[in-house]
Amino acid sequence: MQHNLQLFLQNISASFAGQQLIKITLGNKREKSAELKNIFIKPVTIKNAPKLYFTYRNNTNDTFKNYDIKESLILIEKMLQTDFYNADLFTATNDFHLSADKSGTVKIITRPASLVIKEDAGQHDKQKNRVINSATALYLHELGITTAEGIVKKDMQDKFKQINRYVEIIEGIIKDIDFEKNITVADMGSGKGYLTFALYDYLTANLNLVAAVTGIEMREDLVKKCNTIAAAVNYKNLIFKKGTIQDAELKSIDMLIALHACDTATDDAIYK
């Protein structure tokens, strides 16, 4: 019923106004072949203005938009009428589950709150303190560092800090070098690819360079996984190759990365 949909929207508006809104999800797409799979929405503060941050999850990529509450309610209402059957609203006091069917019947189930508001929730501007933006770096989700909504997982906070610190160090080294828009990099012993992906992201997204980055890794399963992720996030010039540091064939490169805590790997890379 239209009444239940309006009630759901009123709950969104009230929880947003009272700073009790934690997140909203839209799912169970009406058209199974549709490219858009889900929408995840969370409150953020941008330049001291409260907004709702939309993550549109598509089959091949994610897109992101910020809207004020009025625009958001219009969009959510439209999506629940044309694109999705289900929606979940999580607030500090209650969870609300909305479900619709093909006949137009809409039901709402109210449950006790399952989530709590984090002290730093919604401070979207704080992302500027990090070189790598967790909300837009899709590879971070594929690597298991962030949730589908672009939030860094609790048990991956240290890894995310390490990635950003690593990129900051690289930034300090190359900031005064003119690469003339092109740079070729080899990462020797790239492992799971955390730092390799972050470096490619920084070079292309932050510095707008045409970067060709190659990760050399001896474990075939990691090479395959990293190449799959690179293809999924459309990093065309980021590739991973199976091989050892000693045997790797390196042509003309501008920078060689070697960051290891095991045996003589770093010494081998320097010698190479």
Rank of each mutant, 00 (worst) to 15 (best):
N164Y: 05
S252R: 14
Y56L: 09
D62I: 09
T196D: 00
F40G: 00
L256G: 09
N94G: 14
D187C: 07
T244K: 02
I109F: 11
I69A: 04
I216M: 12
R111T: 13
F90M: 10
D155E: 12
N234C: 15
H124N: 15
T266A: 10
A230Y: 01
A87L: 04
K23S: 14
Y53V: 04
D268G: 08
I170G: 03
I239Y: 10
K102P: 10
Y271A: 13
H97F: 07
E217L: 03
L115E: 04
N164F: 08
I76A: 05
N59P: 13
S15Y: 06
K102Q: 14
F240K: 04
Q123L: 12
K175Q: 14
M79V: 10
N38L: 02
N234R: 15
A248M: 09
F179H: 05
H3Q: 09
L199F: 03
Q2E: 13
I109C: 13
V106K: 09
N58S: 11
G191M: 03
D247E: 10
L256P: 08
L199S: 00
D95W: 08
L140K: 00
Y53G: 01
N4Q: 09
V185F: 01
T244W: 07
E180W: 10
H260D: 08
A230D: 04
T204Q: 13
E71N: 14
S190L: 05
G104I: 11
A198L: 05
F96K: 09
N227K: 06
E220T: 11
K102Y: 12
A92F: 12
H260G: 03
E77T: 06
I46G: 03
F179V: 00
T82Y: 06
A211E: 01
R30K: 13
K118A: 15
I245N: 02
F197K: 00
V116H: 12
G189D: 10
S114N: 11
Q19E: 04
T146I: 04
T228C: 15
N133C: 05
I108R: 05
A230R: 01
T63F: 13
I24Y: 00
C226Y: 00
S103L: 14
I239P: 02
I257Y: 03
D263N: 15
H124I: 11
R111S: 15
N164L: 09
D88H: 12
N59Q: 13
I245D: 01
Y56Q: 08
C226H: 03
N129A: 15
S190P: 05
I108Y: 07
F179K: 02
R57A: 13
G215E: 05
E149V: 08
A135L: 08
Y166F: 11
H260E: 09
D88L: 15
S33C: 12
M188P: 04
L138D: 08
Q162H: 08
T244E: 07
Q6D: 13
